[in-house]
């Protein structure tokens, strides 16, 4: 497949401007050029309303705030225009707590930094071609978290650092949960 992502509008939320350049390069190679960048949660919230992105890529921590708090507000309909908007969370933190929190606020995908080109591509394919239903329960609103995640066999030379991160998809895969099994 040779997916044409060129019509997508993407909002990137990261306080590190170098990361903006990295993502601009990677998304540009995917022909995604309609990209807006925000360096803090406040401007991200404003961009969501005006720019109306199709997909949000956010660091889990933006400055001294958690980017995930922003996503929680999006899902609650307090910020942005679409509570169903797909979200990819980027993280340099591999702590379980952070991954679990990302899952619990309703992100679609979690990716480790350094960002792998192939994994980001694969995540975009997943989001756009295999949309997951949303689950609304007392304690959760977001994409269905029951999902089998398989390790992606990459061929790129970048984005790997010897197996501790970047190639750590299985570590970072959103875990399957059984909290909806009983119902």
């Amino acid at each position: 497949m040779a997916y044409d992502f060129s019509a997508l509008k993407v909002l990137v939320v990261d306080d590190n401007v170098h990361m903006h350049q990295i993502l601009r390069s990677i998304l540009g190679a995917m022909r995604i050029t309609d990209v807006m960048f925000a360096v803090d949660v406040k401007s991200a919230a404003e961009e969501m309303a005006h720019f109306r992105p199709d997909i949000i890529i956010t660091d889990v921590v933006v400055g001294d705030q958690e980017g995930l708090d922003l996503i929680e507000k999006v899902r609650k309909g307090e910020v942005g225009f679409d509570p169903y908007v797909p979200v990819i969370a980027l993280t340099g933190y591999t702590e379980r707590r952070m991954i679990t929190r990302a899952r619990d606020v309703g992100v679609h995908e979690v990716l480790a930094k350094p960002v792998s080109i192939e994994m980001l591509y694969q995540r975009l394919v997943n989001i756009t071609t295999k949309p997951r239903p949303f689950i609304k329960s007392e304690g959760y609103f977001g994409p269905c978290r029951r999902r089998q995640v398989k390790a992606f066999q990459g061929r790129e030379k970048r984005g790997q650092d010897g197996g501790q991160e970047g190639g750590g998809e299985e570590e970072l895969a959103i875990p399957e949960v059984s909290d909806f099994e009983a119902a």
Binding site: Y3, S6, L8, A29, Y84, F134, R155
Partner: peptide, 27 residues
């Protein structure tokens, strides 16, 4: 205990499986 919602897939209309660069070209 929960509700399953199938939101409208607006991205399907925006993303074609053809016409873009191959993954190899992207990388």
């Amino acid at each position: 205990k929960f509700e399953v919602i199938n939101p409208p897939n607006s991205l399907a209309a925006k993303v074609s499986p053809h016409g873009g660069p191959s993954l190899e070209a992207v990388v």
